[in-house]
């Protein structure tokens, strides 16, 4: 039997006893096996991806060394009876450090020196020497905290040297500033100054004394008493 539908393209359609009709068991199985044959590469890929995901989830995690080990304040290197020199960008030697023991601390980037002897020079001719039982320095050697019979001598060419003494002095090696936050003494020629705290501007050569201050001036005709200010 021929069926002519006016607005559809002529497609041969066979209707009748020979076409397998859905719903019978033999055609269902053939459909599943057909589907499986067509889709097994996809299934295999999915299975592999699942396996990889499972592996990643259950693989033992690499221990993160950076966070687990707390950085302790212990020296990472030491020097004994050393001498170190520092040069500026123009190759001028600006700092010489000598000491018995040097310890460098990685966590704070500080340097601790026992029995320090320091010499500093600036291009404009200013020179400074410093010594103390102990010193703490930042990594670049700009800020030096001197502790224990600290002495600093700052001098200009053809001028009287200025001597600083105290239990704790802080030296700024780029300007030759000297600061004290506890009792300290400054001597220049026949003048001696003493105060609870002081700051010396190494560039302007001006000393500021904070708190009760004492100055002792020794007239030329007077005998020279010992260094102690009384």
């Amino acid at each position: 039997m021929e069926l002519h539908l006016p607005d559809l393209p002529e497609v041969p359609v066979s209707v009748g006893a020979t076409a397998p009709r859905l719903g019978t068991p033999r055609s269902g199985w053939r459909w599943v096996s057909g589907l499986f044959v067509a889709a097994w590469p996809l299934l295999l890929m999915a299975l592999l991806a699942l396996g990889t995901w499972w592996l990643v989830r259950h693989a033992p995690r690499q221990p993160d060394t950076a966070t687990t080990a707390p950085v302790r304040h212990v020296p990472d290197y030491r020097l004994e009876n050393f001498e170190a020199e520092r040069f500026d960008a123009q190759g001028q030697r600006v700092l010489i450090l000598r000491g018995q023991h040097l310890q460098h601390f990685q966590d704070t980037q500080d340097v601790r020196i026992d029995t320090l002897a320091l010499q500093g020079h600036l291009p404009d001719g200013r020179a400074i020497t410093a010594d103390a039982r102990q010193a703490w320095m930042d990594d670049e050697g700009v800020q030096v905290r001197l502790e224990g019979q600290a002495q600093v001598s700052s001098r200009l060419p053809d001028a009287e040297p200025i001597q600083f003494r105290g239990e704790q002095l802080t030296l700024q090696t780029r300007r030759h500033d000297v600061t004290a936050n506890q009792l300290a003494q400054v001597e220049q020629g026949r003048s001696l100054f003493q105060a609870q705290a002081m700051h010396f501007d190494g560039v302007a050569r001006v000393l500021t004394l904070t708190g009760p201050a004492r100055a002792r001036f020794l007239p030329a005709q007077a005998r020279s008493p010992s260094a102690s200010p009384n």
């Binding site: 609870q196 000393l207 004492r214 002792r216 007239p219 007077a222």
Partner: peptide, 27 residues
Amino acid sequence: DRLQPMVVESDGRQAASVDLNRKITVL
């Protein structure tokens, strides 16, 4: 007296200043 050291003291309410280049001390 002129053979003795001259001692100058301040109570520290204000900072003292010493110009070590010009040798001038102000308390």
